[in-house]
């Protein structure tokens, strides 16, 4: 199979997965007993709703018409990025989500990059000097750390650095009503980001680190390392450009597999730090039983996870020449 075909099939796989999710989103509420509007919005919302609103919603979803018309309306709504109406926030679900999504992406994206990069570097260094003090401390420390659940690390950090030492803000993503601009705004956001980010990284780091370290230990026994040393390559070059490059392959695969875990971790962390991302949003949506919002968030998170996986897949193919040309 050649390269294009290969990536085409994997993209196709993702499209199918997405289609299944959209289909479920459409079918499930309509299969519930009773009135679909009920199922979509929940009792409380309907109580608060005026009859006009109800009528306009029924029109929008084409609930009074045939099954095919409903599907068509659903697809058209999706194409318009219309995920329904959040009665709790009294605005479109999509715009509520759009307000929270960047914060979550910022948090998870940075956590992913930092945890992976740091894990790889620590893993390489510690695998290189296997058995030395540094190696043993790192193995023990990071194994210990990654044994905790995310929220636990979050709470500990919050208590130590936020409450006791008062070094970082306790909640939120920016200081409200401070009217900060430019660089100050950035710094402020960063200060708010540090603790949640640190907790996410701390929990994610262990897995990357251990995998890298063990891969490096095996790779260092391979003959191409000896070949490189015989060429006169420096330790740095052998560590990073030969062993390091080869260990990216298993690390990338593992990262792809860990992305869902990263997202769920982020949801909890956000709640702890009242970070205004999807996690907190989901929390309040659950409190208010804002069904359309809950559904929208789950849909977005799923899409985000799938997209991230697709990216990892494509990255892997760039990294390993053997996959492209595998027969």
């Amino acid at each position: 199979m050649n390269r294009e075909q290969n990536s085409r099939t994997s993209i196709l796989n993702y499209i199918i997965a997405l289609a299944v999710i959209f289909a479920l989103n459409f079918i499930l509420p309509r299969m519930m007993p009773g009135d679909p509007l009920h199922a979509i919005y929940g009792d409380e919302a309907l109580v608060a709703m005026t009859p006009q609103m109800e009528a306009s919603l029924i029109r929008e979803f084409a609930l009074d018409r045939s099954w095919t018309d409903q599907l068509l309306a659903y697809v058209i709504n999706l194409l318009h990025c219309d995920l329904g109406f959040s009665y709790y926030y009294r605005t479109q679900v999509s715009s509520v989500i759009m307000g929270a999504l960047p914060w979550t992406l910022l948090l998870t994206g940075l956590a992913l990059i930092i945890a992976t990069a740091l894990g790889i570097i620590l893993g390489i260094e510690s695998g290189w000097q296997r058995g030395a003090t540094l190696d043993r401390c790192l193995v023990a420390g990071l194994m210990f750390l990654s044994g905790f659940p995310d929220f636990f690390v979050g709470i500990i950090l919050l208590l130590i650095f936020g409450v006791s030492l008062n070094m970082a803000p306790l909640s939120g993503a920016v200081t409200p009503y401070a009217g900060l601009k430019g660089l100050d705004y950035l710094l402020d956001a960063l200060m708010h980001l540090i603790l949640p980010l640190a907790s996410l990284v701390a929990v994610q780091l262990g897995a990357v680190y251990l995998l890298t370290r063990n891969t490096i230990v095996t790779l260092l026994g391979e003959s191409f390392i000896l070949t490189a040393r015989a060429k006169g390559c420096s330790d740095l070059c052998i560590k990073y450009s030969h062993a390091g490059r080869n260990c990216l392959l298993p690390v990338t695969t593992a990262t792809g597999l860990r992305i869902p875990h990263l997202f769920t971790g982020a949801l909890f962390i956000e709640i702890i730090f009242s970070y205004p991302g999807l996690g907190s949003l989901l929390n309040s949506a659950l409190d208010a039983r804002d069904y359309p919002l809950i559904q929208g968030i789950l849909l977005i998170v799923t899409i985000a996870v799938l997209t991230a996986n697709l990216l990892v897949d494509l990255l892997y193919k760039r990294l390993d020449p053997r996959v492209k040309y595998a027969h």
Partner: peptide, 25 residues
């Protein structure tokens, strides 16, 4: 020693599957 290696002293290894870096051209 590293300066000598590959420059004045060179070694050809047995051609095992992994004598060359698999991800490098």
């Amino acid at each position: 020693f590293r300066n000598l290696r590959g420059k004045e002293l060179a070694m050809v290894f047995q051609n095992t599957e992994d004598a060359l870096d698999p991800v490098c051209r």
